[in-house]
Design a protein around this nucleic acid. Sequence first.
DNA 1: CTGAAAGCGCTAACAC
DNA 2: GTGTTAGCGCTTTCAG
Lengths: 326, 326
Amino acid sequence: MTGFSIATVSRALKDHPRISQKAKKKIFETAEQVGYQPSMIARGLREKKSYLIGLIIYDLDNHFHAAVTRRIIEDAQLEGYQVIIRSTLDRPEGVAEAIEDMKKSGVDGIIITATRLKEESVKNLIKEKFPVVQVMRRLEDETGVQIVSDGTYGTHMLVNHLLRSGRRKIAMIGGPEGLSTSKGRYDGYFQAMRENDIAINEKLVLKGTAFSYDTGYRLCKKMLRQGLKPDAIVCADDQIAFGVMQALDEAGIFIPEGIALVGFDDCEMSSHPRIQLTSVKYDINQMSLLAVRSILKQIEGCCIDYKLIKLVPQLVVRRTCGYQTV
Amino acid sequence: MTGFSIATVSRALKDHPRISQKAKKKIFETAEQVGYQPSMIARGLREKKSYLIGLIIYDLDNHFHAAVTRRIIEDAQLEGYQVIIRSTLDRPEGVAEAIEDMKKSGVDGIIITATRLKEESVKNLIKEKFPVVQVMRRLEDETGVQIVSDGTYGTHMLVNHLLRSGRRKIAMIGGPEGLSTSKGRYDGYFQAMRENDIAINEKLVLKGTAFSYDTGYRLCKKMLRQGLKPDAIVCADDQIAFGVMQALDEAGIFIPEGIALVGFDDCEMSSHPRIQLTSVKYDINQMSLLAVRSILKQIEGCCIDYKLIKLVPQLVVRRTCGYQTV
DNA sequence: CTGAAAGCGCTAACAC
DNA sequence: GTGTTAGCGCTTTCAG
């Protein structure tokens, strides 16, 4: 207290219309001196608003997910929101746990980049009109706000490109089951193959257990060990492709001469001259911005534009797909 | 209310000693049914505790920082704490802003991996006995809890290794000024050179503006453009080294035959057969665990073991340093 | 063992 | 314009 009542102080700090300029000035000065910090937590209790948003991600060790996470944190930060983060590492119960803890912490909304196709916890959240947006991965049903890349289209482009370069025995090392990203990319592969009347060899379609370097390495090694010899490998993401590249390099198979290789997401390292991975990219900044805007709109406007936004990816042709050599 | 008073419910849920088993049972059952979630924010207001810890990082686009961030989030999560995250991108005001916002949000403690040598905001935090731990980067003064890698020792090892391999004109592409990590690595370089009576060519010591791919690429190009021809380049981190590698590759300079190259941090991609970057690694898991334990001890025990822990890095020799070819 | 009541820091409705 | 007051959801004395 600086002579004024506690209410006046609150009004001054919140820029209330009915407040005298001198009072306001004096209060601001003293606040500065004392180093007064309004407690968001008390304000939250009162206003039922915490200025916190929850962000549930898959894994920061994945470069692409890390990049998306960074953008979302930055964008939210610019809007005056703090971000509470949880990573699930795709543990079955991960998302549900994270949601529960975040609700306890009183977040105003939740952005999820770790959704699985069947995720009851997310469905419930949407059902009870809790602000939530799915980014990258989405639920099976077109429910809630979903901002994703068109993985089917992207993979379709990649496979078509390989086919045009004369490849026929195209293998796929995909992502874990139960994810919209994995599914979309498998779909794109099958679709492109079918459209071009290429018989699909089931043995050449491998399911990964994670979007990771290690997955790519192990599955590629396994494929080679089984004596399978595709002339191209499509990977569900760049990190898997890096691992595949290691396995091929170690096996003495030249890329792209022996086997062509393509990824998905277009990470920073993919353009490195020693890697030169053909991939597919889309606008992370836009994705993040749309996500943050949507969550704020839901939080503040209480209105939900139920919608599915598919960002169109763009083919980035580099050496590994062998285009230049054909 | 389930027949019992609000106080009894509170006691039941908190496992109070003086409570009848039947009451407890009944309350738990009804809580389950209603899907009751205790509001951390109300509890926080009352107990002056939020079960939130703040994490201030530099940039998730840096693979190493992303990896450390991941571990810290996981470890905190396991201890029942939620993590509020902010990235500063090394903006001058970044840390101070982040600290202010986090205090407003009522975090119980703050872990910082983005500290600069002179960071008044962090010093103040420590002075007022707010729980805080510095990870990776630290303040100039040995104040507060500091858990870092011994960058001087690590770089010393790297440079010594290059010298033993016969290199003499060793360049350094370092990190931004004002960071303990940058400083430690410069120190290690100078120390090793001096100990071996190698004259230091100031032109071969370049200061980066960030720990990034781009920095390495630009500075290396600049160095080559100036007609400088070192026989080895020491980089302040692996990501810088990746950029340097791109510049050298583009310039048609063989690594390590023409110029040897070493990094720091040992990222996943550094072991890739096409990269094979010699680097220095240390235990991220341990670093994270120590950080989380320390912050919890400070929060819960209210006691601070003021201390500086330097994790000893380990040399990882690969192709780029040219050891095998000597 | 359980209930009533105070209070954490803040905001908003209502007086003055 | 400013002060008073109630109450957000919870924990915790203090009585019973």
